[in-house]
Simulated assay, not measured.
Amino acid sequence: MHAQIVLFDGFDPLDVIAPFEVLYAGGTAASGAVGVELVSAEGPREVVAGTGGLTLRATAALDPARPGLVLVPGASGRVGEPGEVPGDDAGDGPWRQDEFIPVLLRRTLETELPALLTAAMENPEVTVSAVCGGSLVLAMAGLLEGRHATTHHLGLDLLDATGAHAVSARVVDDGDLVTGAGVTSGLDLALYLLEREVGPRVAHAVEELFAHERRGTVWRAQGPTPARF
Score class of each variant (00 low, 15 high):
Met1Asp: 05
His2Phe: 09
Ala3Asp: 10
Leu7Phe: 14
Leu7Asp: 11
Phe11Thr: 00
Asp12Thr: 09
Leu14Gln: 07
Asp15Lys: 00
Asp15Gln: 04
Val16Gly: 06
Phe20Met: 13
Glu21Tyr: 12
Leu23Phe: 07
Thr28Gly: 15
Thr28Glu: 15
Ala30His: 15
Ala30Cys: 15
Ser31Trp: 09
Gly32Tyr: 05
Ala33Ser: 15
Val36His: 15
Leu38Pro: 00
Ser40Trp: 03
Ala41Cys: 06
Glu42Trp: 12
Glu42His: 13
Gly43Trp: 12
Gly43Glu: 13
Pro44Glu: 06
Pro44Gln: 06
Arg45Ser: 15
Val47Ser: 00
Val48Glu: 00
Leu54Asn: 06
Thr59Trp: 03
Ala60Val: 12
Ala61Thr: 12
Leu62His: 02
Leu62Ser: 06
Asp63Ala: 13
Ala65Gly: 11
Ala65Lys: 04
Arg66Glu: 07
Pro73Ser: 09
Ala75Met: 10
Ser76Asp: 04
Arg78Asp: 00
Glu81Leu: 00
Gly83Leu: 07
Gly87Ala: 04
Asp88Ser: 01
Asp89Lys: 02
Gly91Cys: 02
Glu99Ala: 11
Ile101Gln: 03
Pro102Asn: 14
Leu109Pro: 03
Leu109Ser: 05
Leu109Trp: 05
Glu110Met: 11
Leu113Met: 10
Pro114Leu: 13
Pro114Lys: 13
Thr118Pro: 03
Thr118Tyr: 03
Ala120Lys: 02
Met121Tyr: 01
Glu125Ile: 04
Val126Ser: 08
Val128His: 00
Ser135Phe: 08
Val137His: 02
Leu143Lys: 00
Leu144Ser: 05
Arg147Leu: 02
Thr151Pro: 08
Leu154Gln: 15
Leu154Ala: 13
Asp157Met: 09
Leu159Asn: 14
Ala161Arg: 14
Thr162Met: 10
Thr162Gln: 08
Gly163Trp: 12
Ala166Leu: 05
Ser168Tyr: 08
Ser168Glu: 14
Val171Lys: 02
Val172Asn: 10
Val172Lys: 09
Val172Trp: 10
Val172Cys: 13
Asp173Ile: 05
Asp176Ile: 05
Val178Cys: 12
Val178Gly: 14
Gly182Asp: 10
Leu189Val: 10
Leu193Gln: 07
Glu195Trp: 08
Val198Asn: 00
Pro200Ile: 05
Arg201Lys: 11
Val202Tyr: 02
Val206Pro: 01
Glu208Ser: 07
Glu208Cys: 11
Glu208Phe: 12
Leu209Ala: 15
Ala211Met: 13
Ala211Asn: 09
His212Gln: 12
Arg215Cys: 04
Val218Tyr: 08
Trp219Asn: 08
Arg220Thr: 15
Arg220Lys: 15
Pro224Ile: 09
Thr225Tyr: 11
Pro226Arg: 12
Pro226Glu: 08
